[in-house]
Amino acid sequence: MTDKNAVEVVDLVKRFGTFHAVDTISFTIRQGEIFGLLGANGAGKTTTIRMLCGLLKPTGGKATVAGHDVYREVPKIKKSIGYMSQKFSLYEDLTVKENIEFYGGVYGLEKGQIEEKSTALIRELGLENRSNTLTSSLPIGWKQRLALSTALLHDPEIIFLDEPTGGVDPISRRSFWKLIYDIADAGKTVCVTTHYMDEAEYCNRVCIMYQGRIVELGSPSQLKEKHNLPTMQDIFIQTVDR
């Protein structure tokens, strides 16, 4: 972890009509950090991430991602980030190998590079026997890890994961988080949203969002100390309940 900032957000706002989905939030994510965006459904997590990825124009405020402005430098941002959307992001009717090849190609990797990466990736994920089966036939946990790996093909500095473990069994969630640690260890910045509070404990720092606003921000241990509560779960319930 360094003290350079991968993401800087100042007074960011997103309005849909008169509804404030994201209401004047500010935070920073340091390079190499695992940053958690927590909150119940509808808190504004996805909207925040989509603005940072250049998928949605903010209504107001400022934000930079990898030093690039979210209003004016979207193409540069796209080159520096990986993104896994809340919805499943692979083609179920393509094989494992074809999915990797496709995303590699779309990210502009060369043919040799794609070949090399896909072999390595398939080996890492233990999918050697399944590289030519349709992605739809993979168990969900494996699909998620494959999706994450394809989002990393172009070696991005920062990676945004929107509820990557939704609907996944606890064992698969653990191995998914192991992968996230590997990514952080490799020096990449991870911004992950979740509403599983046990996962919050795995993050270096978290912010809790409630109705479009940030209501808590800090490391899990700081927050527990501040509220004098034993788990993130308790903190979440308290902050959201008051």
């Binding site: 990825c53 250049g54 998928l55 193409p75 796209k78 080159k79 980030i81 993104y83 896994m84 959307s85 809340q86 919805k87 499943f88 992001s89 692979l90 083609y91 179920e92 995303y103 779309v106 990210y107 502009g108």
Partner: peptide, 13 residues
């Protein structure tokens, strides 16, 4: 619908 369009939109294409 399946979400891949959004995935494509964050790529540099």
């Amino acid at each position: 619908e399946i979400g891949t369009l959004e995935q494509l939109m964050v790529t540099p294409i």
